[in-house]
Design a protein around this nucleic acid. Sequence first.
DNA 1: AATACGCACAACCGCCGCTTC
DNA 2: GGAAGCGGCGGTTGTGCGTAT
Length: 245
Amino acid sequence: MEGQFGWGTLVDGWRKGPWTAQEDEILIEHINQHGEGRWNSISKLTGLRRSGKSCRLRWVNYLRPDLKRGKITPHEENIILELHAMWGNRWSTIARSLPGRTDNEIKNYWRTHFKKSKKPSKNVERARARFMRQQQEQHELKGEQHQEEEEEQQQQGDMRGIMTQIEEAALAQGMQEMEACMYPLTSMLQWGGCAGGGGVSRSMSDGSSEEEAWGSLWNLDDILDVGEGACRGGFALQDQVLTFY
DNA sequence: AATACGCACAACCGCCGCTTC
DNA sequence: GGAAGCGGCGGTTGTGCGTAT
């Protein structure tokens, strides 16, 4: 069952396609009155012929009042790069660290700006080469040293402490504090995961060379892909997702 | 001026995990 | 314990617009 219904189509009784201003109004009014959630009951309560999923998506990605419209700033881009290096395609997790930005927005931004560049720039290639060298050295080093257990536990403890500080600071003082807090976190991750490499967010926001920045990112990849011991610490951090609102 | 291309954005789909009954 | 419903997430697609050729 499918038919035209103004803008969009009617499929199995559900409207699909672009939302109209009237539909937006109805949805906003409903959520203002009843709050978010119970998405599937919205159609019954409001008469909107939209599925719960569609309502939720429209609200989360477009209608929410706290959304930040406009282009991703270079600073936000840096954060996205760093967090993607840490967490991969966990867009919702990344989005939680960028107030006013949605996972959809970040996902789209990543796809158009980074994913499709099949051939990395020379700077990126150099950074990757350096990363590979460091990785090899690290592997050789690992063969000689077996003291992970104790150190790992210590690092995890340290990082959890840092995470607590980050969350408290962020809750109390918002984004600016977050930026400051990210620095010890990322440094700690590098320190725990692999040798070499400088600070991450600082080096980038200070306006140092792009290569340095990419080098830092590769180091973060190292943490997740290679450094097993530190990796576990890193994932422990992921479970304590940053929520900066 | 016409066309091609890339970017930005909105929306849908399928899967998965959690909750409820 | 298991089936059903629901919400959330990541992947993908479609479309409009601006810019380059």
